[in-house]
């Protein structure tokens, strides 16, 4: 491999940093796929795959992707919650991979809640 110059080094830094984004922890929001037994049975895995494909396509690194347990409304699964900094969390219900992709592009990237798929806005209070 040819010897590096300072500019090469900075480029390697920028490229490698993308690899490490999960460790840096600079997020403006997160998307949670509910993966209780009910969610998985209803197809939550496909939702995960669809979303991760979109993350990859867009090289999005400022939104944390995570999974969590059952959201408590098993009949509405598969569900996801989208939390963007400064806005109330939004829960989406009865998703398909296509709906998930639309949420990704219109809400997470575009900032517009897709009201048709929404189950509710806000979350339970923690007592």
């Amino acid at each position: 491999m040819p010897k590096l110059t300072i500019d090469d080094l900075k480029k390697i830094r920028d490229d490698s940093r993308k690899e490490l984004y999960l460790r840096e922890g600079n997020y403006r929001g997160k998307v949670i796929v509910h993966m209780g037994t009910c969610g998985i049975a209803a197809g939550a895995r496909e939702i995960v795959n669809a979303l991760l494909d979109e993350f990859d396509k867009r090289k999005l690194t400022d939104i944390m992707f995570t999974t969590s347990g059952c959201a408590g409304l098993c009949s509405e699964e598969p569900m996801i919650t989208v939390e963007i900094e400064g806005a109330a969390p939004v829960k989406y219900r009865k998703l398909t991979p296509d709906k998930a992709k639309r949420i990704f592009n219109e809400h997470i990237i575009g900032g517009k809640v897709i009201t048709d798929f929404v189950l509710g806005v806000g979350s339970e209070r923690v007592g």
Partner: peptide
């Protein structure tokens, strides 16, 4: 080494040498 570089590794020696 790229993990170290990603965390600004070897930038100090770049600064020094330049």
């Amino acid at each position: 080494i790229t993990d170290y570089i990603a965390r600004d590794g070897y930038l100090a020696i770049s600064k020094v040498l330049s």
